[in-house]
Design a binder for these strands. Structure first.
Lengths: 236, 236
DNA sequence: TCAAAAGTGTTCACAGTACACCCATGC
DNA sequence: GCATGGGTGTACTGTGAACACTTTTGA
């Protein structure tokens, strides 16, 4: 029952699970805390929610402070509320996962953070229940990217089909047939073929594509079924 | 940055979006508040999270107090955190949606609640941002039920194929072909055909089925694609 | 015997898959 | 010219959609 005055108040934080893709594999950005408590321990970036901001605002602020970037793809993952999850004092944490073009990422000068990218499956022990956050975020990424054109957020504005295919292969840990992959992606009309080629990764060179942002924004919530559903729950 | 002592504390509540199905249509359970503030106004059931419980615990407690039922299907929907969402004092609310077999539901004697089932698309104005909760929950229900065998939670232990089909038709607001629907559902092996028939709703009578709970629990996270994906975003 | 609803069978179109093949280029 | 990886063509298969058809029973 809602008797406001008699209720207990709690600390309220956000934490961000930040994914990047370096062309080879999926990465997770974590920080080594430069301050107490838990100085030197690995952790997700996070912070307390201020009086005048929503959790979304707080997450965006934290993301910006770490990456220098605005307008990152960001989505609420889950509210973690276990009584003992924070060993200092009871704290509710709303977790957000974010996708970033790793090439745009610039490490900010910040004495509090020592951020490091780790491969998504080989990251150090994290404080509190942050490892649970990461595992849930990985699951959600796989789930959602199978249905929505999400992974483009991890790529630079110009990318090639083989790059895109490799990204999907990283996320789902399976190999796709290049012919079928190309046709499927092109059939969405989400991609615009550019005139120039990437000649670094092959002799023949692969054409660059960019996202048709108009269609991307309109169709984001349409379902694409990029990935056969039986693979979604495959253990890595 | 995590300087605990200097941080502000906030109120922390849960609210439940409770769906039921009466054989005809999808329903939403809301209460008319019997206490101040906002006495007489319509609201989702909710409550503050106590010192010794997680949000899940609190939501289960609230659900039980309203329905008398334990172990309802319940899932975290979203944390709502806007600064001004609660007009009395800043409160974070974690919303849960729950599915209940409306026949099991027994109204509890409780002077604080006057619960009423409303059709999912015709419910009264709700306090705070609760209408937003409901709309998001409806969306999530449609999304998730298209991929997972979720809607059985709304049915009694024994149900017929036409009943099940009608439920899906309610949720998605489209008609399915009974032949294709039957085959699709049966091909999942989630259903066990019983010996007896429901003779109330047709002359011929329709066989009862029950859920194969072993397979149900094992395969809940497998993808079933009950519903063609283009219907998922259809406006009702 | 007829109407109504349950349940089955059958056809067709198309999307996903596998895989062979062609193309462009650097060495 | 040949190895390498990009890109295209094609045949096969299984699933989903449409819809005709049969079954059962109450009135």
């Amino acid at each position: 029952m809602r008797r406001y005055s008699q209720q207990k108040r709690f600390l309220f934080a956000v934490d961000c699970i930040i994914f990047g893709y370096d062309g080879q594999e999926l990465k997770l950005l974590v920080i080594q805390r430069g301050f107490e408590p838990f100085k030197g321990k690995w952790s997700l970036v996070g912070g307390f929610v201020l009086d005048n901001e929503s959790a979304e605002d707080a997450a965006a602020r934290v993301l910006k402070s770490l990456t220098g970037l605005d307008g990152l793809y960001m989505e609420q993952l889950h509210a973690f509320t276990n009584v003992d999850r924070d060993s200092v004092e009871r704290t509710i944490s709303v977790a957000y996962f974010a996708l970033i073009d790793i090439q745009k990422y610039k490490q900010q000068i910040n004495e509090d953070f020592h951020p490091v990218w780790f491969p998504i499956n080989v990251y150090p022990e994290l404080i509190f229940d942050h490892a649970k956050f990461v595992e849930l975020a990985k699951e959600k990424l796989r789930y959602k990217a199978a249905l929505h054109p999400l992974l483009f957020e991890l790529l630079p504005p110009k990318f090639t089909m083989p790059e895109l295919q490799n990204l999907y292969q990283c996320v789902y840990n399976i190999d796709f047939d290049k012919g079928n992959f190309n046709r499927k992606l092109l059939s969405t009309n989400l991609l615009v073929k550019l005139k120039d080629k990437d000649k670094l990764n092959s002799k023949k060179g692969a054409f660059y594509y960019k996202v048709n942002s108009k269609k991307y924004n309109a169709d984001f919530n349409s379902f694409l079924n990029f990935v056969p559903t039986q693979y979604l729950n495959k253990k890595v």
